[in-house]
Design a protein around this nucleic acid. Structure first.
Length: 106
DNA sequence: ATGGAGGCGCACA
DNA sequence: CTGTGCGCCTCCA
């Protein structure tokens, strides 16, 4: 416990892993849940730094508008959408999720 | 220790 | 609803 403080990344990864299937969460929400409401940016940064062997459902993390953040690596953004659809998350014709219905209710 | 950068959020118009 | 500008904070070199 006090022998070592887990970095925000550790908290973020752990929190994202807690997102139930078929639900999505926003960066700000994750940041708030870990006690850092001002660190929404770090959440995105942490996900961007995710290793290849991660077990974090980063695909369930979207911005406050319910849209998938445009990543530098084209193709993954589309992959993210597919994963969510596989879980039962529905998308709007504009490519946005119905947060009101699929937002992780904590 | 300092500087730069980042998959954001919010207020305004 | 959308776009723009600014700020919060941490991490890496």
């Amino acid at each position: 416990m006090d022998s070592g403080e887990p970095s925000l990344y550790e908290l973020i990864y752990d929190m994202v892993c807690s997102i139930p299937e078929g639900k999505v969460a926003t960066y700000g929400q994750i940041a708030r849940l870990i006690g850092r409401p001002r660190n929404a940016r770090q959440v995105g940064y942490a996900l961007a730094a995710l290793p290849e062997d991660h077990e974090v459902p980063w695909q369930r993390v979207v911005n406050i508008k319910g849209e998938i953040s445009p990543r530098k690596q084209a193709g993954y953004d589309d992959y993210q959408r597919i994963l969510l659809e596989e879980e039962g998350v529905e998308f709007n014709p504009a490519g946005r999720i119905y947060l009101k219905q699929f937002l992780w209710d904590v």
